[in-house]
Design a protein around this nucleic acid. Structure first.
Length: 659
RNA sequence: GCCGGCAUAGCUCAGCUGGUAGAGCGCGUGAUUUGUAAUCACGAUGUCGGGGGUUCGAGUCCCUCUGCCGGCACCA
């Protein structure tokens, strides 16, 4: 028999018969390792203990102590155990696919009846039975025809389709968990009992399209989470509770920031507190933009379809636009919108984006190469008819305002403009409390316009720009727009969630379509490039992110109510008013609370309202002209003179770019 | 848009198999002058999301519309 050489993590090599399995390798090392082994890494690939190794390779045996492979196997086996449980309870259910994902797995089923929350309990109980049975896991490689025939006979059409979609050179691996069989690329544990029975939980049921295609049947997806032990599961469930507690929709109500109602789905009614955050952030961005070399403009909301046809948006996004039809023959007598005179009706759309309007501004007056780069910024209020199922609080809305700008420039200026934008964005993110961010670089897609030379040049310019700023990126090959590459900027919040906010996109297409040009040094007319860029994305969504990142405890300068001055006795009311006035005079948002309530009551209420500073004023403070400062979340309070507290809080109320 | 769930007082929620609506907080009034996360008493909460149907009778059952929630699809 042929021999192969396996190299261990410590650098030593040993020779084995070809076709040796990791289980046999582990047993050859020690019986305790054989017992603990759950899988192996073979040349870096996650390898089932039962799969034969046919050639020289680097090998490492995994045990439950190895975090990533252990979780992978536990979750993967649970997907199968859950599918088996479902088919044991409801044999008519068809199985499809069940991958590992996030903190657990999901499995999609085809079943006429919906699964109920009670069903999840039944399935969980059955899963524990399967785990306790310690059923062996077996794997075999089958010929395609045999597997297809097997699934056809068993009435599993989805599996048959899956086999059709697996590339012909890939071996088809059949797995058995006890008597139950599934098609799976593996690897798996050796028996079901290796899965911890008390560290998983079925979370919810949801619809999901077969193969993620909305023209395909809707299946029922059951989500589960799983960990190596009960404590990790508990920690995860606690984390979910914490995430729910910082939900911006809940905090928005509790802090009286905004509301939404069904007459205007997907649009925000901002309350005074929320609008204070919004305008404070907008004022900040306006200063940053000005300092960054942008000229601010403002463009129309309601624009004739002709412009959208010219820009190409009408063809592609008509169904996602709010259409406004106006019968211009109306005379005040017969204004019923339902009986419009078609010939006289003008069709407009609420602008879903700002770029075509910005090109119109650019086109006023002939531009020279000396005018470039021209950076036009707008807090552009846009309306998009988002599908109802996509709406989510203020994070995904139908009416929103972008911190949008378009840079008109020459090809040679792309690199420096890109680098300049990355620095601008990095500075803004840092000042807003997000010191690190990730860049994703999306390059030319298969379906594209433009020459290869042009793509080469522009992609290279973006890469050089990133390099120049000393940053790294991850490549998203093929994910660019049909006309140009783009950068997306992702920040991470306090509980580890990642949000795409900024974007930078190179567009030679729209200037072409809308006929923008400039006169070059050579006296000829040329096409400018257009760079679409946003830093926050939309104010609505970014404020949602800020709220969730901070759990409502916004940075002092952004907090809508910065200070409450609370009286302890009514004799202090005059002095309270004086303190409030002194703070207001220095630009601090302070308000008085002289209600006839105990200080405990006031502290509790304003703490729940996330007010960052409470000043308590009793007889002593009046006497000494001091205040007692209590910071949100702190138990201790500090006694300060009026001047001291005004100076301290005024400094904090100052936006970061003005310090 | 698709699948499933939900919609009761300002908020959070109770209301069993149909028999003419309830709690806590908040709100109002009064008392209390209070020292860092809920002072006490009294009082009012409402077309049970809209429309239709079944029934002697519907918050409760059925249909439908709207919105919200969880996913999926979408996100210029």
């Amino acid at each position: 028999m042929a021999q192969i050489s396996l190299t261990f993590p410590d650098g030593n090599s040993r020779s084995f018969d070809a076709g040796v399995t990791p289980a046999e390798v582990a047993a050859s090392i020690s019986s305790s390792l054989a017992k603990k082994a759950i899988s192996a890494q073979v040349d870096g690939r996650h390898w089932d203990l039962a799969w034969p190794i046919e050639q020289d390779a680097a090998i490492a045996i995994n045990t439950m102590a190895d975090d990533a492979p252990a979780l992978e196997l536990i979750r993967h086996d649970l997907a199968h155990i859950m599918a088996r449980a479902v088919q044991e309870i409801w044999p008519e259910v068809k199985v499809t696919i069940g991958p590992v994902r996030d903190h657990g797995w999901f499995y999609d089923f085809d079943r006429a009846e919906p699964f109920t929350p009670e069903d999840l309990g039944r399935i969980e109980a059955k899963m524990r039975d399967i785990i306790n049975a310690r059923d062996p896991v077996k794997t075999e490689i089958w010929e395609r025809d045999r597997a297809v025939a097997y699934y056809e006979e068993r009435g599993e059409p989805f599996k048959v389709e899956l086999i059709d979609r697996i590339p012909g050179d890939e071996p088809l691996r059949m797995y058995w968990h006890g008597p139950w069989q599934d098609l799976c690329r593996g690897p798996h544990l050796q028996h079901t009992g290796q899965v911890p029975a008390d560290a998983f939980k079925l979370m919810n049921v949801a619809g999901a399209y077969w193969l993620g295609d909305s023209s395909r049947p809707m299946l029922q997806r059951i989500y589960g989470v799983a960990f190596r032990n009960r404590n990790d599961l508990k920690a995860h469930l606690t984390m979910l509770e914490e995430a729910a507690a910082r939900d911006h929709r809940k905090l928005g109500r509790e802090m009286d920031l905004f509301h939404m109602q069904e007459e205007a789905p997907g649009q925000v009614f901002w309350h005074p507190n929320g609008w204070t955050i919004y305008t404070t952030l907008q004022d900040y961005m306006r200063r940053k933009q000005r300092a960054g070399g942008y000229r601010e403009i403002n463009t129309p909301q309601v624009v004739d379809r002709k412009l959208w046809e010219a820009s190409g948006h009408w063809e592609k996004y008509q169904h996602h636009m709010f259409i406004v039809e106006v019968d211009e023959s109306r005379d005040g007598e017969n204004d019923d919108a339902a009986v419009r005179d078609k010939a006289q009706t003008r069709i407009n759309a609420l602008k879903p984006m700002n770029c075509p309007c910005h090109v119109q501004v650019y086109k006023q007056g002939l531009k020279s190469y000396r005018d470039l780069p021209l950076r036009l910024a707008e807090f552009g209020s846009c309306a998009r008819y988002e599908p109802s199922g996509a709406l989510h609080g203020i994070m995904r809305v139908r009416g929103f305002t972008q911190d949008d700008a378009h840079i008109f420039c020459t090809e040679e200026q792309i690199e420096s403009e890109c680098a300049r934008f990355i620095e601008y964005l990095a500075n803004v993110y840092a000042e807003l409390g997000f010191p690190t961010f990730e860049i994703k670089f999306a390059t030319r897609p298969e379906k594209r316009v433009g020459t290869e030379e042009s793509w080469d040049y522009v992609e290279n310019a973006l890469e050089q720009a990133i390099r120049k700023t000393g940053r790294t990126y991850t490549l998203e090959a093929g994910d660019g727009a049909f006309y140009g590459p783009k950068l997306d900027f992702y920040l991470t919040d306090a509980i580890g969630r990642v949000w795409q906010c900024g974007t930078f996109q190179v567009d030679p297409n729209l200037p072409e379509r809308l006929d923008a040009e400039y006169v070059g040094a050579d006296g000829d007319r040329h096409r400018p490039f257009m760079l679409h860029r946003a830093c926050l994305g939309s104010f609505e969504r970014f404020i949602g992110i800020l709220i969730e990142d901070s759990a409502g405890r916004l940075p002092f300068w952004l907090a809508p109510r910065q200070v409450v001055v609370a009286s302890i006795v009514s004799d202090a009311n005059d002095y309270v008013a004086e303190v409030v006035a002194a703070l207001n005079a220095k630009g601090v948002r302070a308000e008085a609370d002289t209600r006839n309530e105990k200080i405990n009551y006031k502290v509790r209420e304003h703490s729940l309202g996330k007010v960052p500073a409470i000043l308590a004023i009793g007889a002593r403070e009046v006497e000494e002209r001091t205040v007692s400062l209590r910071r949100l979340g702190e138990k201790q309070s500090r006694l300060l003179s009026l001047d001291e507290v005004v100076a301290e809080l005024a400094a904090e109320a100052c936006p970061p770019d003005m310090r």
